[in-house]
Amino acid sequence: MGIPSFYRWVTERYPKCVVSAREDGAFDTRRPNPNGLEFDNLYLDLNGIIHPCFHPQGLPAPKTHEEVFEAIYKYIDRIFSIIRPRKLLFLAIDGVAPRAKMNQQRSRRFKAAKDASDNVVLSDASVPGEGEHKIMSYIRLQRNMPGYDPNTRHCLYGLDADLIMLALATHEIHFSVLREVHILIRD
């Protein structure tokens, strides 16, 4: 999905809503975040990571799948070191076209309690739907769980401008969207 030119419109109209993220290269979640914000959860729409690793701008395309996966791992590590989530890393990949969606949602509801105890959740291509919508579904599910902390700090990474709208629609108090203007990952 996506909203063409929406990100540019928002940043031109409200320039203070965009801040540059600082990096110190540390991977340790026990260290304070160099950006002055601490996050509980990090959600990655992996399609926004996979595509630039297959087709990097200004660099030659990778020759092997190993090179692609290495670039993907470096990309995820870099984002993780910037955000340093304390509780959850949620990885979502666009799934197949939404067929039998109701059955899938029912099974996800039963899995939600188990998933909440893991640190990392992977919603792969076998789960129907776009990655960002699977992330939003998970956040809504967690909000309805007993004991949910309304002060949970969320950070969502992805390249689609519609992530801004989706983040606003969650009505979560602490929600950030991480985007990159241009990124080169490979050595």
Rank of each mutant, 00 (worst) to 15 (best):
R78A: 03
R78T: 09
I79R: 02
I83L: 02
R84P: 06
P85W: 04
R86T: 08
K87R: 15
K87E: 11
L88Q: 15
F90W: 09
L91W: 04
L91N: 04
I93T: 10
I93G: 08
I93E: 13
I93W: 11
I93Q: 11
D94T: 11
G95Y: 05
V96Y: 09
P98H: 08
R99Y: 09
K101Q: 14
M102P: 02
N103D: 15
N103A: 15
Q104W: 12
Q104M: 13
Q104F: 14
Q104T: 15
Q105S: 12
R106V: 14
R106H: 13
R106M: 15
S107F: 10
R108S: 09
R108K: 13
R109G: 07
F110C: 12
F110V: 14
K111W: 11
K111S: 13
K111D: 08
K111F: 10
A113F: 12
A113H: 14
A113K: 13
K114H: 12
D115V: 07
D115F: 15
D115Q: 11
A116I: 08
A116F: 09
A116M: 10
S117Q: 14
S117G: 01
S117P: 00
D118W: 05
N119V: 08
V120K: 07
V120S: 03
V121S: 07
V121G: 00
L122I: 09
L122V: 08
L122K: 07
D124K: 02
A125Y: 07
A125C: 05
A125H: 08
A125K: 08
S126T: 10
S126L: 07
V127T: 11
P128S: 05
P128L: 03
G129W: 01
E130V: 01
E130F: 04
G131Y: 00
G131E: 03
E132T: 02
E132L: 03
K134H: 03
K134C: 00
K134G: 00
K134Y: 01
I135G: 00
M136F: 11
I139K: 00
I139V: 12
I139L: 02
R140W: 08
R140H: 13
R140M: 07
L141G: 12
Q142T: 05
Q142C: 13
R143V: 09
M145E: 10
M145T: 02
P146Y: 04
P146W: 02
G147T: 06
Y148M: 04
Y148A: 06
D149Q: 08
D149E: 07
P150H: 05
P150L: 02
P150Y: 03
N151I: 01
N151G: 06
N151H: 14
T152D: 02
R153G: 06
R153T: 10
R153I: 05
H154G: 04
